[in-house]
Design a protein around this nucleic acid. Structure first.
Lengths: 229, 229
DNA sequence: TCTTGACGACCGACCGTCGGTCTGTAATAT
DNA sequence: ATATTACAGACCGACGGTCGGTCGTCAAGA
């Protein structure tokens, strides 16, 4: 085979791109290192020159995804005109907007990520996003507590709890996706929507706010994302 | 090798016992099927006669553990004399008592379960215990809402959230265990204790109770469990 | 009581796959 | 010219899982 040399960064990202595509298509375990190098057009030796193990791919991919996600809300986080509650709601609104925008891609990824055999992949993505969001959310809570809007004794712990509440959607999400195309799809989406609505209430309460202050979903959001093609 | 024949149930439990011991000692991935059959004193064929895959061991073990755990609190769950809040607190108190009783074994298991490479093992155990506890906790919340003591619009969702809050302790637990034996051990335990205390408050708020109604920890509990030998 | 035969528990050699290593080489930098 | 980096690809050992066959058990028929 002809030898193609590229800069380390470019090659690394190429590998990450290929791996990410495969992971979101077949899952982590069902994707072999040989699959990845075949897709990227690279040799085994080349791969292991850039990554010391298959697991490193997960780290690289999830780190990139998380960095990305936070970059897209940076302006909201840095806007000095916003109060804590406004900032939090603007952040959540932006997140929803982004999800709506690439709902089809997201939905396709969900199909794979929420399969039981891909638990590890899901968990890593989740852990990475929590790690990135924790300091962000903590800052907002500290801010809100200083403003006297929130009433939270342990901001960092509260941030952790709130972020993990998102993880508790896993099961219902999985169920909803499994029900996709069947007669129960509609009911499953309804239930998921009710759940997400309640999670907003849980956040309100943890922050010491009146119910409904921090909406997690807006009308039609859940259905729009879950039925996207 | 001499052939030893036993009833399917006995053999199955023997295999589960051996596998559980190994998983809690070396973790799931680092335990091979050959390790298990060597420990139990059985052949490869024998093993696959009772289990269709290595993963089935996880299911079997976690199911057993979860069944066990719920059996040990059955009396509290069934006691008609208890109100919902009393029942919930009695349940948590019993759980703590059980943890204190076999703190050394628990602590040893923690050492393995919270290592990053054993994420799958941890997750399965957690998922199984949540699956078992969900209906139990849901019932308590429904009861409490009917009594007018709790104020929860979606009992099942609330149960899910509360159970998942426990999962958010994973990171700090892992950190605390990693700090074991170092100079930071003391500070890590303090922080873990503060976190657990806050989780109690989060539960109070989700249930619509005044802060401090549902204590997650009692003084000295965290240290007692985490420093057990 | 003894034989027979079916069934299920069990054996262990074997296999394919997969993550990872190693030796070597072409391209690039110094 | 030389060192370093980026890559190639044959190879390896370990592991999960399979498969054809064996042996203990027990019940029915002679």
């Amino acid at each position: 085979m002809p030898r193609i040399v590229k800069s380390a960064d470019d090659r690394r990202n190429e590998i990450l791109d290929g791996a990410q595509a495969l992971f979101f298509e077949r899952g982590y375990e069902r994707t072999t290192v040989n699959d990845v190098i075949a897709k990227v057009g690279i040799s085994k030796g080349g791969f292991y020159h850039h990554f010391s193990a298959k697991e490193d791919l997960l780290e690289g991919i999830t780190a990139r995804l998380a960095q990305d996600a936070v970059a897209r809300v940076r302006d909201i986080l840095d806007d000095p005109a916003l109060g804590a509650l406004e900032r939090l709601n603007a952040f959540l609104a932006r997140s929803r907007q982004m999800k709506r925008e690439d709902a089809p891609k997201l939905r396709a990824a969900f199909d794979v990520i929420f399969r039981p055999e891909n638990l590890l992949l899901y968990h890593r993505i989740n852990a990475a996003s929590i790690a990135v969001m924790r300091p962000v959310l903590t800052r907002i809570i500290v801010e809100g507590t200083a403003e006297g809007v929130f009433a939270v004794p342990e901001p960092e712990a509260a941030a952790d709890v709130i972020l993990h509440i998102g993880a508790s959607t896993h099961d219902i999400m999985a169920r909803t996706i499994a029900a996709s195309g069947t007669a129960e799809e509609d009911a499953a989406i309804e239930e998921l929507d009710r759940r997400l609505h309640f999670y907003g209430i849980a956040v309100d309460r943890i922050l010491g706010l009146p119910d409904g202050s921090v909406p997690f979903v807006e009308p039609g959001f859940t259905r729009a994302v879950m039925t996207a093609r």
